[in-house]
Design a protein around this nucleic acid. Structure first.
Lengths: 163, 163
DNA sequence: CAAAATCATATTGCGCGCAATTTAATTTTA
DNA sequence: TAAAATTAAATTGCGCGCAATATGATTTTG
C-alpha cells in the first residue's frame, strides 16, 4: 500500500487524527450527559441526583467513611462533597458526625433509608444496562478502555503538577 | 464449557453484570472529568472553558448559526447556551445579533479573535491526543462505541418521552 | 512545650446543565 | 384578519464541580 500518495497522506492524516481526538472528547462529554439524562427519571422518584447516587453506592461498599475517603473514590473534593452530603443527610439517606478520635474528620454513615435504597438500585442498574443497548462483553470492554484512558490522563496531570 | 455449574452461574452473572454497568456509568463520568481537567490548563490561557471551546469548534465548522442550531449540535438548551454565549461575546470571540428576517432568532458569528483561535486549537488537540495515550485506532474505536451507545440512550429517552 | 506546618472539612464565587417559566416574534386556524 | 398556538431566546432556581480561601484540629519541629 506504499505508493506515490504517501506524501499526500502525511498531510491528510494529522488533521484526521486531530478531528478524531476532538470527537473522542466530545463523545465522552455527550455520553456522560446521555447517561445522566437516562438516570434522571429513574432517580427522581427518590429525590436523588446521579452524584448523590454514586456517593451512596460508595457507602454501600463500605459504611462509615470519611469525606476525604469518599472524595478519593469519587474524584471529588470537599467543595463538591460537603454540600452534597448535607443534602443527602437532609433527605434522610445518611448521617454525618465528627470523628471523636480526630475531630477534623467527618464520618459518613448510612441510615436505614440509605441501606434500603441499595435494594431499589438493582432495578435501576438493570434499566440503565438495557438502555445502553450493549452486551455484557461490550460494557466490560468499554469500561476497561475508559478506565485505562482515565488513568493515563490522571497520571499526566500528576506529572504536570510535579513539574 | 456447559457443565453442572450453569445453574450457579445464572445466579452469579446478574450481580456481575449489574456491578459492571455501574462501572460503565462511573467510567464515563470519571473520563469526562479527567478530560475536562486535562483541557483546563490548555484553555485557561485563553480564558475559555471546555463548553465554550466546543461552541467555538461548532462555529469553525459553520459560522452564523442560530442558538438553536448550536444547541442541537452540542446537546444543550438555551438555558445553558444563552449565558455561555454572552460570556464568549464579552471575551471577544463571537458576536450575537438578532436575525433581521426572523427576530426570534439570534445569529452567532465569529470575530477575528474567534477565527484566530482555530489555529491555536491544533496544538491543544495534539496535547489532548497525547495525554490520552491512545493510538489513533483506539481513539477511533472508543469514539465510535461511545457515539453508538449515546445514540441508543437518546433513542430510548425519545421513546420514553413519547410514551 | 510552643510555634509552625499540615490536615480535614466547610465556605464562597463562578460556570455549566437542566427544568420551568417568561417574553417577544411568527405561524396557524377559525 | 383576529385569536390561538407555536417558536426562539432569555431568565430563574437549584445542584454539581472546582479554585481559592477560611476555620479548627492535629502533628511536626525547633
Amino acid at each position: 500500500m506504499v505508493d506515490k500518495r504517501d506524501e499526500a497522506e502525511t498531510d491528510i492524516i494529522p488533521p484526521g487524527m486531530l478531528a478524531l481526538d476532538q470527537q473522542l472528547c466530545f463523545a465522552v462529554y455527550s455520553a456522560a450527559h446521555a447517561l445522566n439524562r437516562t438516570y434522571k427519571p429513574l432517580l427522581d422518584p427518590y429525590g436523588l441526583t446521579y452524584p448523590q447516587y454514586i456517593a451512596l453506592m460508595t457507602l454501600w461498599e463500605g459504611d462509615g467513611r470519611t469525606v476525604k475517603a469518599l472524595g478519593a473514590k469519587l474524584g471529588l473534593d470537599s467543595g463538591t462533597l460537603s454540600p452534597l452530603l448535607k443534602r443527602l443527610e437532609a433527605a434522610g439517606y445518611i448521617m454525618r458526625a465528627r470523628d471523636k478520635a480526630d475531630e477534623r474528620q467527618v464520618l459518613v454513615t448510612l441510615t436505614d433509608k440509605g441501606r434500603a435504597m441499595q435494594r431499589d438500585a438493582v432495578a435501576i442498574r438493570m434499566e440503565i444496562g438495557k438502555a445502553t443497548g450493549c452486551t455484557l462483553e461490550a460494557l466490560q470492554a468499554l469500561t476497561g478502555d475508559l478506565q485505562a484512558m482515565t488513568e493515563r490522563l490522571e497520571a499526566g496531570a500528576a506529572r504536570d503538577d510535579a513539574a
